[in-house]
Amino acid sequence: MADDQKAKSKGEQAKGKLKEAGGRAVGNERMEAEGRAEQAKGDARQAKEKAKDVFKH
């Protein structure tokens, strides 16, 4: 399950980067902000998984 969560976090980060870049390209500030929020969500999920790995070993 941990690998699934790690993959999900990477996917959220990538999706967020694409959305942010797309928003910046077309001048859509809302889309850009949503992209940053998705990246932050992915970063938080990744940090949680890393912390679980530290305590697992």
Rank of each mutant, 00 (worst) to 15 (best):
M1D: 14
G42H: 02
K8R: 13
G11Q: 07
A7V: 05
Q13D: 08
V26D: 08
V26N: 05
A33H: 08
A47G: 02
L18V: 09
K8A: 10
M31T: 02
D4C: 10
A25Q: 10
D4S: 15
A40L: 11
H57I: 12
K10A: 10
K48I: 04
E38A: 05
F55E: 13
G22I: 03
R24K: 15
E49C: 10
K52F: 14
D4L: 15
R36P: 01
M1K: 11
K41C: 02
L18C: 06
K10C: 03
R45Q: 10
D3H: 10
D4H: 13
V54L: 11
V54Q: 09
K8E: 12
E29Y: 09
G35Q: 02
R45H: 09
M31E: 04
S9G: 04
A44S: 08
M1F: 15
K19A: 00
G23D: 03
G11Y: 05
R45P: 01
E12F: 05
R24G: 13
A33I: 07
G22V: 03
D43H: 04
K50G: 03
A51D: 07
K6F: 12
K41Q: 14
K50N: 10
Q46K: 11
G27M: 13
V26K: 08
N28C: 04
Q46T: 06
S9W: 02
E12W: 07
A44P: 02
A14E: 15
G35D: 03
K17M: 10
R45T: 04
K56G: 03
N28D: 15
A40W: 09
G23S: 03
L18I: 06
A7E: 11
K19T: 00
D3L: 12
L18R: 13
R36I: 08
V26C: 07
R45S: 08
D3W: 11
A44N: 04
K50S: 08
D3Y: 12
E20I: 01
K56P: 02
Q39C: 03
F55K: 09
A47C: 01
A51C: 01
L18T: 07
H57M: 13
A47S: 06
A51P: 00
A37P: 02
S9Q: 03
G22T: 06
A44K: 03
Q13N: 10
A2V: 13
Q13P: 00
K17Y: 08
G22N: 10
E32C: 15
G22R: 04
E29V: 13
H57T: 13
V26R: 06
R36A: 12
M31K: 02
K41Y: 05
E49I: 08
E34G: 00
D4K: 13
R36Y: 07
K15D: 07
M1V: 14
A2S: 15
A7D: 10
K56T: 12
A51Q: 09
G42K: 00
L18E: 14
A2Q: 14
E12K: 05
M1H: 14
E20A: 13
G42M: 02
K6M: 14
G27V: 12
A37Y: 06
F55P: 00
G23W: 01
K56I: 06
D43L: 04
A25G: 08
A51H: 06
R45N: 11
K17F: 07
V26E: 12
A33D: 11
A40D: 13
H57G: 14
K8S: 07
D3M: 14
E49F: 06
E49G: 03
A21R: 07
A37E: 14
E29R: 11
K15M: 09
